[in-house]
Design a protein around this nucleic acid. Structure first.
Length: 329
DNA sequence: ACCTGTCAAGTCTGG
DNA sequence: CCAGACTTGACAGGT
């Protein structure tokens, strides 16, 4: 009997299919100031956040309708949440029911949810102030996951950060500064290789040292590598997920180059063949895999990819449902 | 309805 | 040392 790898596919933040369902509506600090009334400003921000959370729930329902069990939420659910001048504001009491509704729905549907704090969360920074802001941002993301009632399988995916002219020192500083974080934060983190600075080999070393699961971005690995093939790193990357106290399939990110001039930019859709080649290479040693699509066309790119995969059904690919496939090694 | 500039946060590069 | 590039979705303000 041939081994087959179960692959689930997901997408990020917003839908290009469902209209008027942005989970990232915001308000600028300038507008907040212009209101003059701080309390009124807080209430308006809370309403916007409530709407973002409501739209997130709408997206989850859309996902369930299309068998999508993998979804990364917007980091901008609460506008100005970590803004320096709004430290006295606590929007969570008001938003608790809306957060719970999301978590309850996801838990019931068996969905895997995550965040990706943006690249301002940098634990390799030499600046004390930036480190403080990074901790604040990560804490905020963990608090949102907690408010949803999601267990530690729901992660915050981050990059290592800048090199500051000396990558080895920056990497060591990341390890040092990350190690000092509260365990409740550390448990919620995965590390991802980036497309400019910390490549897959370097990120993997740090993941192993800190015992953190590593998310392999195969597009980043393609533009930032040491000559290795991604499948050659896979046994070790796969192993970083085995230390999880809960069973969690390894996750990878996939996107395709925007064009010949801009290889790092993300295209509207995902090319099926490079992805399929990688999936076939790791299928013999992997039982489950989650694939996050990072394409401009979001869920539409997911549907297109599933459609493209259909032409390989006589070639080791079995379509299981609208968002998952089985790949033979 | 559509277009252009701005926002928010960091790092990095060029002058 | 400082201005600008980079990135992203959405706001803000203009036509």
């Amino acid at each position: 009997m041939k081994k087959a790898m179960q692959v689930r596919i997901g997408y990020v933040a917003m839908s290009t299919v469902i209209k008027n369902a942005s989970p990232s509506r915001t308000m600028t600090y300038k507008q907040f100031e212009k209101l003059g009334d701080i309390e009124a400003g807080y209430r308006r921000l809370e309403r916007i956040a409530e709407e973002n959370l409501h739209n997130t729930l709408r997206l989850l329902k859309h996902n369930r309708m299309h068998d999508i069990h993998l979804y990364r939420m917007s980091s901008k659910l609460i506008p100005l949440a970590t803004h320096q001048s709004l430290q006295d504001w606590d929007p969570f009491p008001y938003l608790k029911p809306a957060f719970s509704a999301i978590g309850d729905y996801a838990n019931q549907a068996g969905m895997r949810l995550s965040f990706h704090p943006d690249h301002f969360t940098v634990f390799s920074t030499p600046r004390e102030e930036v480190l403080r802001h990074s901790i604040r941002d990560l804490t905020h993301h963990v608090r949102m996951l907690d408010a949803m009632g999601l267990d530690d399988r729901a992660k915050n995916n981050i990059h290592i950060g800048g090199a500051y002219g000396d990558k080895a020192t920056a990497g060591a500083r990341f390890i040092h500064q990350f190690s000092k974080l509260d365990p409740t934060l550390k448990r919620r983190v995965t590390l991802e290789n980036d497309d400019k600075t910390f490549n897959a080999v370097e990120t993997l070393q740090i993941s192993e040292k800190l015992r953190l699961p590593m998310v392999l971005d195969i597009h980043h690995q393609w533009v930032n590598n040491e000559g290795e093939r991604p499948q050659d790193l896979w046994p070790r990357i796969h192993a970083t997920w085995r230390e999880e106290h809960v069973v969690l399939p390894p996750k990878i990110h996939v996107s395709s180059p925007k064009n010949d001039k801009d290889l790092r930019g993300h295209a509207d859709y995902v090319q099926v063949e490079p992805l399929l080649n990688f999936l076939r290479a790791i299928a013999p040693i992997t039982t489950h895999l989650d694939v996050m699509i990072e394409a401009k066309m979001k869920d539409d790119a997911l549907f297109k990819l599933m459609d493209d995969l259909k032409q390989y059904t006589n070639d080791g690919v079995t379509i299981k449902d609208q968002a998952s496939v089985e790949i033979e090694g």
